[in-house]
Design a protein around this nucleic acid. Structure first.
Lengths: 356, 356
DNA sequence: CAAGCCTCCGAAACCGCTTTCGGATTTTTG
DNA sequence: CAAAAATCCGAAAGCGGTTTCGGAGGCTTG
């Protein structure tokens, strides 16, 4: 357990065999007698031999490594998903002793050239892309480079590559339907810029549910802001300033929902009583918000493992379009959803607001 | 922008030069005429040549890669720190085009053998270790392997290796002093098992402040539980069940503090009024707890960059013990700290509790 | 007992890049 | 203008593995 690493050469000399023979013994070639195979393996164990990976991979012509691009814009609160995803990816890759390379780019240009470099320099044999735009240049690039990849999320056209996504459209339909079931009819959507496909998906679900229930989509009730708690807060304030404010709000994410709660409380209103709020993500932290956040929960840890498995399968030659998985989110009721306030209650609200 | 990667050989043939010449031209060797150097570089750009990293690193005898071990036990809520650390590390390493390898082990045994393998197989030239135990076997191992490493945190004896840590002892002194300044005298400590050095450090600070103010350390007021929000909740319930419960609580982490708030609210008490709570970490989501959490804040993003810089310096040959950085945490007052309730108020509390 | 067949290992080549060394050409020098 | 010095590039070797190929030796056959 010390100094210089043990090379095949040293091991071979030690065994009085040649390097290729030792290599084949360790790799269970059939043309090596069981006797010497065991002898070699025992010696390798004793000396603590570890094949040099750079040499091995150069020879094999593979990197046995997969890259993960950290999302550039991620609110400080929503980051848990990164750690969990990495953990799941690591598990999937670990089964084959593959490595996981993590990179973070400053700008979109940097990101593209980083990808190009990583792939063409043979550092990675596959990539995991998070949170794609509607029309994501990274996907085009990967296709041009003919390098395997999987996407965590979907783009506008998602036929011909592999992805794992949670059905945001479906989720927002159920959350809106849930609020309508509670008697609400003025329901708002708090979201982020539509360049990200997942925002569009969720907005679609919102609109689908509104229309599906015979209501009409009111553009005033669709507030786009920053993808952060502060963004949610600003958007919600705008909603509350409306002449005819909403009684229910569905938020793009738990993080934005936290901001919504803050805005509602700031007005002296009570989330879940005066105004209902539903988030999206199912982050554990939501149990500690004020009040605990009702949300659309999804199995986060699962995503990493599935993405890893899918990517390995594709690298093995599978058709990417065969690997497309849509997960459903489930309503997790905590305390920010409630029945539509009665007229009496509404008057109370109005008077309370006037006091401010 | 297509198919097979461009090798030096192809590039050389294209230029009617030999491989070594092209290599030296690209690496700015002085024995290559400026004319051909430029010619080579231009061609390399045009063809999109990228040196094969496995080959390059094999030849160079270095991996140009640093490993990060994801902490095994980390509460789902506290994970943001991982993403931020990775981001900072990536930044530091990116300046030299080094790679960041992330691994996650199931058990402690797995972790040790993983480290051993990573280092001896030449996959990494350095390691970042998070959240060390008091006496961490990983550190012993790395020292035995003579492989550069930096520790995010400290062990019991921290003289002879590199680390970056936040002064938990100092932080808990100031938080306890803060509560004492507000009139509190029965102050509790909610923590996790002492096998982790950072727990011990913070407990030391707590005790130091208690004693320093002429109070005596009451073992009943030191509650050890799981390092999670649930753990904090359980511990706090135990404290509130005491005959003479505390009026102030300092918590090992923001996550545990959230649990403490939940326990306090569950008793019908108001955190910050009836009982003060101070967390530790300064996580952003603390602004959204009920009520917003007072905490000891620290610059998280900074840690990753510093750790990366330190590690690179050590790999370059610097003496590890020269790289030891202690950061101070700062009190971030939000709404869970308040003056000691008056006697009248205390009676109210008691009667409220009896109602339950 | 010779021919033929396995068994098992060594020799050689290669993966793509880097570095040392030597020598051909050009330039400087006396 | 010959000799010495400087300039620039090619040849060769090496990094540490893997894989293909061939052949020596021991077995089985007829």
């Amino acid at each position: 357990m010390t100094g210089k690493p043990i090379s095949l050469k040293i091991l071979a000399a030690h065994l009085d065999l040649t390097v290729p023979t030792v290599s084949r013994a360790l790799n269970n070639y059939p043309d090596i007698s069981p006797a010497t195979r065991d002898r070699v393996k025992r010696a390798a164990d004793e000396l603590g031999y570890r094949a040099n990976q750079n040499a091995r991979r150069l020879s094999l012509g593979t990197s046995e490594t997969v890259g993960y691009l950290m999302p550039r814009f991620s609110s400080a609160i929503a980051q848990p998903f990164v750690a969990q995803l990495l953990q799941g990816l690591g598990e999937a890759l670990g089964k084959r002793n593959w490595d996981l390379l993590v990179t973070h780019a400053e700008s979109s240009k940097d990101e593209l050239s980083q990808i190009e470099r990583m792939v063409r320099s043979g550092r990675v044999s596959g990539l995991v892309i998070s949170r794609p735009l509607k029309n994501d240049p990274r996907i085009r690039l990967m296709q041009d480079l003919k390098c395997p990849f999987v996407v965590h999320g979907r783009t506008a056209s998602y036929k011909n590559y592999a992805w794992y996504d949670v059905d945001g459209e479906d989720a927002f339909e159920t959350s809106v339907n849930h609020l309508i079931g509670l008697g609400h009819s003025r329901i708002a959507f708090v979201g982020a810029p539509l360049q990200y496909q997942f925002v569009q998906d969720r907005l679609n679900g919102y609109q689908k549910a509104i229309v599906g229930n015979g209501l009409t989509v009111d553009q005033d009730l669709i507030q786009i802001s920053d993808f952060s708690d502060d963004g949610g807060e600003i958007a919600t304030h705008a909603l509350l300033d409306l002449v005819d404010p909403p009684t229910g709000i569905v938020c793009l994410s738990d993080t934005m929902a936290l901001g919504a709660l803050a805005a509602i409380r700031a007005r002296g209103l009570v989330p879940g009583e005066d105004i209902s709020v539903v988030g999206y993500d199912g982050l554990k932290f939501g149990t500690h918000s004020n009040p605990p956040l009702t949300t659309m929960a999804q199995p986060q840890a699962h995503a990493g493992r599935r993405l890893g498995d899918m990517l390995l399968a594709i690298i093995d030659g599978d058709d990417p379009s065969k690997h497309q998985e849509l997960q459903r989110a489930q309503l997790l009721r905590r305390n920010t959803d409630g029945p539509l306030p009665t007229t009496q209650a509404l008057n109370d609200i109005l008077s309370r607001e006037e006091l401010q």
